[in-house]
Design a protein around this nucleic acid. Sequence first.
RNA 1: GCUCUGUUCUUCUAAAUGGCCAGGAAACUGCACUUUCACUGCAAAAAUACGGGUUCGAUUCCCGUACAGAGUACCA
Length: 522
Amino acid sequence: MVRIITCLYKTFQVSLQPMEKRVRVRFAPSPTGGLHMGGVRTALFNYLFAKKHGGDFILRIEDTDQTRFVPGAEEYIVNALKWCGIAPNEGVGFGDGPHAPYRQSERKETGIYKKYADKLIESGHAYYAFDTAEELEEVRKRMEAAKVTSWQYNAVTRQTLRNSLTLPDDEVKRLLDGGEKHVIRLKVPRNEEIRFHDIIRGWVVVNSSQVDDKVLLKSDGMPTYHLAHIVDDIEMQISHAVRGEEWLPSAPAHILIYRYLGLESEMPKLAHLPLILNPDGNGKISKREARFPVFPLSWQDPRESTPYIGYRESGYYPEAFVNILALLGWNPGNNQEIMSLDEMAALFEFERVNKSGAKFDPEKAKWFNQQYLRKRSDDELAEEFKQILKQRNHSRKDEFLVEFCKLVKEKVQFVKEFWDHGSYFFEEPKLQVEAVIAKKWNPQSKELMKELQTVLETLDSWNTEAIHAAFDALVKEKGKIDMQLLRVLLTGAAGGPHLFDMLALLGKEEILKRFATALKKL
RNA sequence: GCUCUGUUCUUCUAAAUGGCCAGGAAACUGCACUUUCACUGCAAAAAUACGGGUUCGAUUCCCGUACAGAGUACCA
C-alpha cells in the first residue's frame, strides 16, 4: 500500500509541488559571444515573469567551457540587458546577491559541483569513465563506418568501455589515486520511461534508451551544463527554468539528475521557449547572413574583423525592440500590440506562449519603432535629432528643430531618417535636372517663378498664412503655378512636408537665396 | 538515420476545456483626404499542410503522411 502511494506520489510529484514557492528565475547565458535577439527574448520572458509575480530575476554566467570563452562577452550581456530595460536584480554585473558568486567558474572553486557529482557516485547513479575524448572520437568514427548513425555512451556501450563499472575496483582506485584523467558520467537506465511537464508544451515522454550517459564533470574538473545548471538552480532556489527549445531533448537527462539527487520535488518548473526563425528561407537566425540586426547592441567579435551592427545603433528605441521581441511567440490574448514593459508584465503568462517557432519580420520591426517614435513629443525628437545633426556638422536653434521635427515626423520610422527626409532644411539643395524639372521647366514657368520670387520678396510678415495668401493672389492674377516644380526648385526633393510650412520655417532670406540660385542655374 | 517538438492568410498571431460568415496587426492593392510624398480614414484580397477517423458538429480530440525546427560532444 505504501509502495503504491509512493509510486503515485512520484508520478504526480511535479504537479503536487507547492504553488507558493517564491518566483525566482534566471537568465544564464554563456559568454561565448554577443547576446543575440533570441537570447534577449529569453531574458525578457524571464524578466516579465519575475516582474509579474514580484519575484527575482537573476543573471548567472555559465562559463564552464574555458575553450569557448570570449573576452568582452560578459560585459556585452550586462550592457545589453541594461539597454533593453530588463535589468536583473541579482547576479553578475547587477550587484550580486545572497547566492554569490554567480559565475560558474567561480562557483566551481567552492567545490559545489564536485560535491553533487560525488553524491551521485555514492548513490550509484554516476560513475567514473577513463576513456579519453580521442578514444571516444575513434569509436564514433568506427561505428559510423559500420553504419551506426548515432553512437552513444549509454547503458549498452558502457559495458565495453573503460569505466568504474567495467574495471575492477582496485584498478579504479589505482587510476584515481594515480591522478588518471577521468570524467564523471550519469548512469542512465537502459529502458525506463521519463515523463516531465513543461508549462508551455505540456507532458513530454521520452524513453531513457534515447538519452546517453551524459558527462557531469569534465576531466578538467569543470562541470558540464547539465550538472552545473541543476546544482545552481537548486542552490539559488530557482522556481522556474525558462530556456530555449534547444534544451528540450536533454531535459529528460536533467529530470534524472534531479531524481537521483533526491531533489525532484524541489525541481524548478520547466518552460522551453520556441525559437526565433529567419524571415526568409528556414532555420534559426544566422548572424552572418541576416539582412537585419541580430544583436541588441553592436558587437565586435574579437576573432572577427567586421562588427555586427546592433538595434541600438540602427536607431531602434529599446522599448520598441523589447516590444517586438515580446510578441514573437507570445501575445496578451487581446489585440493590443504596443505595450510597455509594465503592461507586458501584467499580462504575461507562459500559457500564452506559442509552441511553434516564429519567423522574424524586419518590416514589422520597423513599424514598431515608428509607433514609439510617434509617441515622442516634438521637443524630445528635436533633442534626439540634434545629435545626428551634430555628426553632420550642422546645428540650428531648438525652436527651428522642434518645428522641423513636427513637419517631418510623420514620414520617418527612425530619428536618423529625419536627415534623409529633410537634409535640405540644413544644406543647400542639390539641384539636379531631374524628371520633374525637365518636364515642367519652360520659359513660361520660369517667368512665373520669377514673379513669385518678387512677390515673396516684398512680403512683410513671413509665415504660412501670409505666404499662402500671397501665392493665391498671384495664381489668381497669373494662372496656375506648379507646386511640385516649386518644391523641387527649392528643396531638390519631389516630396516633403506642406510647402508653405516649409517655406515659413526656412525663412525669407534662405528662400530668396534659393530662388536666386535656382533661377541662375536653370 | 534516430529522438523530441512543431504546422491557422506572405509574415506575427486570435478563436478558454470541439458549435455564430475563422478575428486582429504588418505588408500588398484600391478609394478618399492632401495641389506633392507621407499621415489618417475606408475598402479589397488573403489561412486552419495533406489524408483518414471520433462526433449531430473539429482549427480545436485521435491516427497516418508530408514538411519544418531542434537535439544527437569532456559546447552551452
